[in-house]
Design a protein around this nucleic acid. Structure first.
Lengths: 197, 197, 197, 197
DNA sequence: CATGAATGAGAATTCATTCAT
DNA sequence: AATGAATGAATTCTCATTCAT
């Protein structure tokens, strides 16, 4: 009964969802190549063959995973961004949202970091990625034009600040650093110090 | 002359080195799991079986690669560090050395970033990694005690500044940002702004 | 009818059995090490990979084969032994059963002779073997206590009489001696003459 | 100097000897197929390549081993047999010589048992084997004609009595039975009881 | 003659994918 | 749609043999 309801509700099938979910986890814990299809099936509580009803092989699955994770990230950082924020507030908001995104979807977040450049990503995946990058570029360019950022290419500032966050997040995820409210704001301020004019 | 001496010392006529060299390149271009042994053999101009004279299987090889790369990095950042530098100069020196290390050994540098957490790393590899981390901790702790750094855990500052460099380097390696002398110093100053008191 | 039941019980549509069957034959015709997995697969009319669904590698297979053959032999010689036979009748019965076992399962019988001491036999295989040996010891010890056997250790008498049978069987299997009813009883009487008091 | 003398003395080379010696041991402890050439080289204290100066590959080696072992056995049982013995004494003498042969050359003796039928034996090896068999046949036929043996084919009596010895020897070699003078004579008498008229 | 590093054909094994049920 | 046993191509690894030193 409950199962039936979940299926009827959004998120389509439940089974497809479960597969993608299992896959992000395994791809992020291990690697794409290091993860076996029956392993994915097992964690999704689904038969191996079932995956092939929903995805075009392993490559189809990893692309679905990638797009899902990237769109999720876009939702956190771009789609929900309040308009009209000045550079400092805008950056602080993004930093906070990065934390939230990484905390809410640790597997997806880690997966994206580890599987950028992969040659199994198809055109759609690359397009989704590209779109996100452009949106970020636009935001940083706006701040730069307003003279709020260091005189470095927006690309440089984005790479460095995202890099700083990822470095920090990796340590947190590894348990080397404890995630506290204090850390979230202090690290954001530090990152801002790196890029502000 | 020097070459002659090396040949006399190690038994190596360079075959072992050639294999490790081919392996770092391929592991960084692709992945550990995504790289096939004959591929490594081919790039090293060696028969497939030869790899097994020098390394205990693929796992033995990847550990040799990891240790080599990590020790290389340690040499750039720790072993050759001039004593007696104050925090700002010390950090600037390290930032420059990171660039040099990444430029001189791009494959090794990229490999380390992508293959941290891998479960095929053995005790020795983990020990080598640990030692490097401890050395960095010591340096940053010294700067922190001198009151030159932001009041955040050294681990946090290290993660963020290394993360910033890696983010930047990835963009450079991907061809999105051009590596200039200007960029090297400006980015270093920006990173310093992030961590200084 | 019986066949139908077996199919319902075990999951087996006989594939596992076919593999074991092919394996005993090949292992006895050649050797364990001298037999190639695809050869086993071929004779079992199964794909090479299928063997690995049922057995843990070649070693798993050879152990399954060993246990099967040993239990088969135990069934012929121990499990079906009528109670209450005096020494001479008991021995005659066993001798006859050895012939039947060797004739009905020539591959298994030969395999056991050739692959005793092998170091790929696991704990279970050794336990099965040990149990059979103990049962034989018990039987011979009983006969010895009744004063019907020569004053030699039961172990000695078992080794010699089984050895005599195996020597004979090898010649029969090689075609050097013809298996006749006459031979079966005469050889049994001869063997009895060797061990009787 | 000493080395030179040994080489001059019989047994040709010393190195060839060492290789054959190492090979019998390993082939009997393991199997022909289960033994690696470098392993043989190692135990013979010789380089792997050296084996190929003396033998035509692994197959050449195993044939040399087989012939050596078989001729050794022939020497013990046939060549040195005193003429003019009656059946019972002749058999007792052979039984004693079997013990001596097995004790003096355990590896060779075991090797022969385990590697009869092997398909890597060449014409020469088979000829040597055949010759031994014929000699034994002759001896047993003589005893049979004299009416001293049971009315069974000589082949049958040979197979059974040799089989009995081998069975016994295996238990002794495995440590399950202790080799004593008492056992040697009692077992010989038992075996004689099996075949005598 | 002796060596043993190097070779590469061939063996064991894995794993993405299919397909009868 | 769902299953999971079966497949066999692809992969790792072994080992008899060669050959430059």
């Amino acid at each position: 009964m409950i199962q039936a309801k979940i299926i009827e509700l959004g998120k389509s099938d439940g089974k497809r969802e479960a597969i993608v979910h299992a896959a992000v986890e395994l791809f992020s814990e291990q690697t794409y190549e290091g993860t076996r299809m029956p392993e994915v099936a097992g964690r999704a509580h689904v038969a191996a063959g079932t995956i092939y009803h929903y995805f075009e092989g392993k490559e189809g699955l990893v692309n679905a995973v990638y797009q899902m994770a990237k769109l999720e990230m876009k939702e956190y950082l771009v789609d929900t961004m309040p308009g009209g924020l000045a550079a400092q507030e805008g950056f602080a908001w993004m930093w906070r949202r990065l934390w939230e995104c990484a905390t809410d979807h640790p597997a997806g977040f880690t997966f994206l970091e580890t599987h950028h450049h992969a040659d199994y990503l198809n055109a759609t995946s690359r397009a989704v990625s590209e779109e996100f990058t452009l949106e970020m570029m636009e935001i940083f360019s706006r701040y730069a034009k307003a003279g709020e950022l260091k005189p470095l290419a927006p690309e440089t500032l984005i790479s460095m600040s995202f890099g700083a966050f990822i470095g920090l997040w990796k340590s947190v995820a590894a348990g080397a650093i404890k995630d506290t409210e204090e850390l979230r704001s202090a690290s954001g301020e530090a990152a801002w110090a790196m890029i502000r004019a």
